[in-house]
Design a protein around this nucleic acid. Structure first.
Length: 524
DNA sequence: CCCTGCTGGGTCA
DNA sequence: GACCCAGCAGGGT
């Protein structure tokens, strides 16, 4: 205790630092108070935001922009050993590492912007030093700081593009660090171009390969714990891997957006399974049968599934108040699955004169599944064409999306199924101007008119930018987002959402069947 | 609210 | 060109 000149007594805890370190080591060992989980190479490492953000600007920035209470951060292309070493480094302030492992460790540290290893470190209490930062300054591991420096130099000299966070982003349109730096603004070259997993032109242009991905560490992928991407359904088809890899990349971006966008929260529910946490571009093919809704929180749990063989009533009855009353069962024919991926809206500007400027519209992409495209069909073209809204700003402001197979309770009220077959389950029409949401298009329309003075003949779709003139057409339009195809062909597996289309198809189908029958009879 | 026909755009062989 | 998709709108219940 030191008596200060002003009469104040300075109480000093001699073993404060060592005690803190000790306690820190203990809570790490006991996994107490863990509020973040790092997933790496199939292992999970409970950690603490406080520690991670203290030791890494990267984590600090991530947590600042993440609403999740307990995010799960998937670290790709970082070895478990390296991560463990880094954790020890962060918690204990030091770590022993073999010379031969130093390179990869530093590499990982660079990716995660670990202070003292990859990022300049300085004594926070010494402000004079802060102004003279040097990248190699002060690290307890730096007993052999020359080695570290040289190693870092080696990495820096590599042609590996390293962004601000030291992480290479191999994704097409955005880098993770950019997402972190500008989390809200997320643009696509053509916002109307679907981001489904079909070979869209965007993807074809994408210079993304798995090799690239492996060449440099991938960014972490913070995942809201209810952002379950599990239940991938095991329906991955040969050749899908590359696509799904890209899709997963997109998903990572979108998850970033989800987590950092102040408007969209992915509240944690429970820790994901290790398999479910795979965001390395592959759906877990061994995940077995779908388990839709398994990890869904709240009301999505029981009702929101649309897999084959399930009770269609679970989708909702025929009550008017139900958004998706169906003339018959709703499921996807296998043929439809691929066909649905087709079609891309390359139209131009968006918006409605009455609503789009006021409405934050959501576009969702079922990234893991080629069976669905949102906001992409030509049908909206006339509308898009006639509109004048600035699409880039619009999409930058409004784009939200979710990970492949993720079931995320977004504020949008839109939920996703996890399998290729399962349609997107849009259960609620949520007003973006207030908290109102409903399952009934009629109520939705009424709300817009009464509460927001919208034109009753201008019903904006909460998912895409379509604006319906009539409520019945609005209902039909919503089938695009639900995957509903109530009209089934008697002769084949064809299904469609429009009765008139079925009629045309059926006619053709019947003709074909007849001619085929005649041919076989003739051959006999 | 539903059925229906028309229509135009996209995809694919 | 065949086929599919989806918006639009008239008409009936």
């Amino acid at each position: 205790m030191v008596k200060m000149s002003s009469g104040l007594l300075s109480l000093k805890w001699n073993h404060h630092r060592s005690t803190f370190l000790h306690v820190l080591a203990n809570i790490r060992r006991k996994e107490s108070y863990s509020d973040v989980t790092l997933a790496c190479a199939g292992k999970f490492y409970p950690a603490h935001k406080l520690v991670l953000s203290t030791c890494s600007e990267y984590f600090e920035e991530m947590f600042e922009r993440t609403q999740c209470k307990h995010p799960v951060i998937v670290l790709k292309d970082i070895g478990a050993d390296d991560l463990e070493a880094l954790l020890s480094y962060m918690y204990d302030g030091e770590v022993n590492v073999l010379q031969e492992n130093l390179s990869s460790l530093i590499k990982a540290a660079e990716c995660l912007k670990i202070k003292g290893l990859a990022v300049a470190d300085s004594d926070p209490t010494d402000r004079t030093k802060e102004k003279k930062l040097h990248p190699s300054s002060g690290s307890s591991i730096n007993a052999n700081s020359n080695i570290n420096n040289s190693n870092r130099d080696v990495h820096r000299n590599e042609k590996r593009p390293v962004n601000g966070s030291g992480i290479k982003r191999t994704n097409v349109n955005s880098s993770f660090s950019e997402d972190v730096a500008q989390p809200i603004k997320r643009r696509r070259p053509d916002s109307r171009t679907p981001l489904n997993t079909s070979a869209s032109s965007e993807e074809q242009e994408a210079p993304v390969t798995s090799n690239e991905s492996a060449a440099a560490p991938e960014p972490a992928s913070p995942v809201g714990e209810d952002g379950n991407n599990g239940g991938s359904g095991g329906e991955s088809q040969p050749g899908d891997d590359a696509k799904s890899a890209e899709a997963s990349e997109e998903a990572n971006n979108f998850l970033q957006d989800l987590n950092v966008d102040a408007g969209v929260k992915a509240e944690p529910v429970e820790v994901l399974d290790a398999d479910d946490l795979t965001f390395d571009g592959r759906e877990d093919e061994d995940a077995g049968p779908d388990h839709p809704g398994e990890d869904l929180p709240d009301f999505t749990e029981e009702k929101f599934s649309g897999g084959e063989g399930e009770d269609p009533s679970l989708w909702g009855g025929t009550d008017e108040t139900d958004l998706f009353s169906q003339p018959s069962t709703s499921n996807f024919g296998e043929d439809d699955v691929k066909k649905d991926a087709a079609g891309g809206d390359k139209s131009g500007n968006t918006s409605s004169s009455t609503s789009a400027a006021q409405w934050d519209l959501l576009e969702l992409h079922h990234l893991s599944s080629p069976d669905y495209t949102l906001g992409s069909h030509s049908a909206s073209r006339s509308f898009y064409r006639n509109s004048s809204h600035d699409k880039s700003t619009h999409w930058a402001r409004n784009l939200h999306a979710v990970a492949p197979s993720a079931k995320i309770n977004m504020n949008s009220g839109i939920f996703w199924q996890s399998t290729k077959r399962d349609p997107i389950v849009l259960r609620e029409l949520r007003c973006r101007l207030c908290q109102f949401n409903t399952e009934s298009p009629t109520e939705y329309q009424k709300h817009l008119v009464t509460q927001h003075q919208q034109d009753p003949h201008s019903i904006p779709c909460p998912v895409c930018e379509y604006v319906a003139v009539r409520i019945d057409n609005f209902r039909v339009h919503l089938r695009r987002h639900t995957g509903e195809k109530p009209f089934a062909c008697d002769f084949c597996s064809y299904r469609c959402a429009h009765s008139s289309n079925l009629k045309v198809h059926r006619k053709r189908c019947a003709e074909k069947a007849t001619s085929t029958l005649l041919n076989t009879e003739l051959f006999k």
